[in-house]
Simulated scan of single mutants.
Amino acid sequence: MLTLFSGITFYEICMALLMVGMTERVLLAYAPIEMVGPDGWLLKADVQE
């Protein structure tokens, strides 16, 4: 089991977290309100129109 995670570096983890955060910001800014609004099916967020 340890060999499965031994190839993952700290840098890769940081980059993955950064990309998830950036993707969330882009989705909240540009996706339709039905997708990311208070009752959204992808993200439930308090988004101002």
Rank of each mutant, 00 (worst) to 15 (best):
M1T: 05
M1N: 06
M1H: 08
L2V: 10
L2Y: 07
L2E: 11
T3W: 07
T3P: 03
L4N: 05
F5Y: 10
S6M: 10
G7N: 00
I8K: 09
I8C: 09
I8S: 06
I8A: 04
T9L: 10
F10C: 12
Y11R: 14
Y11C: 12
E12S: 14
E12T: 09
I13T: 07
I13S: 06
I13E: 08
C14S: 12
M15Q: 14
M15F: 12
M15Y: 09
M15N: 06
M15K: 13
A16R: 06
A16M: 13
L17F: 10
L17R: 05
L17A: 04
L17T: 00
L17K: 06
L17P: 00
L18M: 13
L18I: 14
L18D: 06
M19P: 03
V20F: 05
V20W: 01
V20H: 01
V20R: 01
G21L: 12
G21R: 13
G21E: 10
G21C: 12
G21N: 10
G21A: 09
M22T: 05
M22Y: 12
T23R: 02
T23G: 08
T23Y: 02
T23A: 05
E24R: 14
E24V: 12
E24N: 11
R25A: 15
R25F: 15
V26T: 06
V26M: 14
V26H: 11
L27G: 00
L28R: 03
L28H: 07
L28E: 08
L28W: 05
L28S: 03
L28T: 01
L28M: 11
A29R: 15
A31D: 00
P32K: 04
I33H: 02
E34L: 09
E34G: 04
V36F: 04
V36C: 02
V36P: 01
V36W: 01
G37Q: 06
P38M: 10
P38I: 08
P38A: 08
D39W: 13
D39P: 02
D39E: 15
G40E: 03
G40A: 10
G40T: 09
W41A: 10
W41Q: 08
W41S: 07
W41R: 13
W41L: 15
L42V: 14
L42P: 00
L42F: 12
L42H: 02
L42W: 06
L42R: 00
L43I: 05
K44D: 03
A45G: 01
A45Q: 05
D46M: 10
D46R: 15
V47D: 00
V47F: 00
Q48K: 14
Q48R: 12
E49A: 11
E49F: 05
